[in-house]
Write a protein that binds this DNA or RNA. Structure first.
Lengths: 228, 228
DNA sequence: GTCTATACTCTGATAGAC
DNA sequence: GTCTATCAGAGTATAGAC
């Protein structure tokens, strides 16, 4: 559960998530990273490539996790409103639980070199396509009222991505509660309706907490520093 | 209109906006900034304090501009739905027109030292209060349907802030069109109603383009590099 | 108001011993 | 697998001439 005696590579990764998300990639020194991971700066390079490589790995892994999780969540949902609800739920829960990783993903695209940036943007685009397709389907069968699919896609993703910036583990709202609220906000935003009645989160087959927890065995955010 | 022969201090500021927004504050070198502004790095310091001071000035000025504009926009709007519409409109238009400045404001809080960060966060809080108060008023008179005012505040601001990340001047949608769409999205999100009927942007007394252009005489974003 | 030259620190990364 | 020592370059900022 906790990170006591975690493998060195993982300790480095966790230290990187903490520092990159708090100060930014460019402002984080290699010595600082080493100290946070409990090594000398030279030893770092036994476990990773360059500092750039470390960022690239974090970003690609994070995007892959997000897309994979979303695709799994969509696999047994047919209706556009159920699919949108799940996209929102997955996005928000991930941005709350993998909070540091998501902050890095969402803010450090500019720190990537041209090649890596191209890869990451492509991953991002294919993830966004899941949203666009869902909105287009809901618009087509008149479940959603949307003036512009592209704009609505960006708006919905912005709405859910913003969570990463203010969510705090241990706050008054847990990840699932925030996600449920956001599902409602999203459904309202696209005026989701069936039989002329507004659809709400409580009418949706949302993913239960266990659905997520079963996928978290490997690599989550590092545990936050203990409260004083 | 253009920046030909602009005062040196302004050229530096513009160069800073371009570089800070594109690469980030920490990743921008002082020599790079000097070159972009057309000076030697030593000459920079005749027109500004430290690199940190330059960021602080940009961020405080931007926050002040945003809050001032919002307060002016609210001065002749009474009803919660009109006030929300104007907050959204101002926020989106500013994030589109002062795109670079807003990107810096929204991403570089972490680059500020403790003292400046405290100031800027306070400015941010008082700006957010305009939104919270508007939502609380609309909830109280049952114009809005909101489960959690704090969460809805953050959600709405996130929705509108996101525009800065993808808006491009000269794209297929101009700032006012995007803002109008976002007003609709925002009103839907809070299920704004009067007499049991949904309220839309077209029913609102939105600010005309002239309202904004009258305020842009002084300092906008630098002109984008000419197309090839 | 702008420059050249420079001080001093920190940067990412490597060499090679243990 | 970790360390100390070190490299070459880039970082911010200043001194002082013009």
């Amino acid at each position: 559960m906790t990170n006591v005696e975690a493998p060195t590579a993982e300790r480095i990764r966790n230290a990187a998530l903490v520092l990159f998300s708090a100060k930014g990639f460019a402002a984080t020194g290699i010595r600082e990273l080493a100290e946070a991971a409990g090594l000398s700066s030279a030893s770092l390079y036994h476990h990773m490539g360059t500092k750039d490589d470390l960022l690239i790995e974090i970003m690609k892994e994070g995007h892959a996790r997000l897309t994979d999780t979303a695709q799994n969540a969509l696999s047994d949902a047919d209706r556009p409103e159920a699919r949108l609800a799940r996209l929102v739920q997955v996005h928000v829960v991930m941005h709350a639980v993998y909070n540091l990783e998501c902050r890095v993903i969402d803010t450090e695209v500019r720190s990537l070199d041209t090649i890596a940036r191209k890869d990451v943007v492509a991953m991002r685009d294919s993830y966004e396509a899941l949203w666009s397709e869902t909105l287009a389907a809901g618009l087509h069968e008149e479940t959603f009222q949307i003036a512009d699919v592209r704009l609505a896609t960006l708006a919905l993703i912005d709405l859910c991505t913003g969570v990463a910036a203010w969510f705090r583990t241990g706050g008054d709202l847990d990840a699932f509660t925030v996600a449920a609220h956001h599902v409602d906000l999203a459904l309202s935003m696209v005026s989701a309706r069936r039989n002329r009645r507004a659809i709400h989160a409580k009418d949706m087959p949302l993913l239960p907490p266990e659905w997520f927890t079963g996928r978290w065995s490997d690599a989550t955010d590092p545990a936050p520093p203990a409260a004083p």
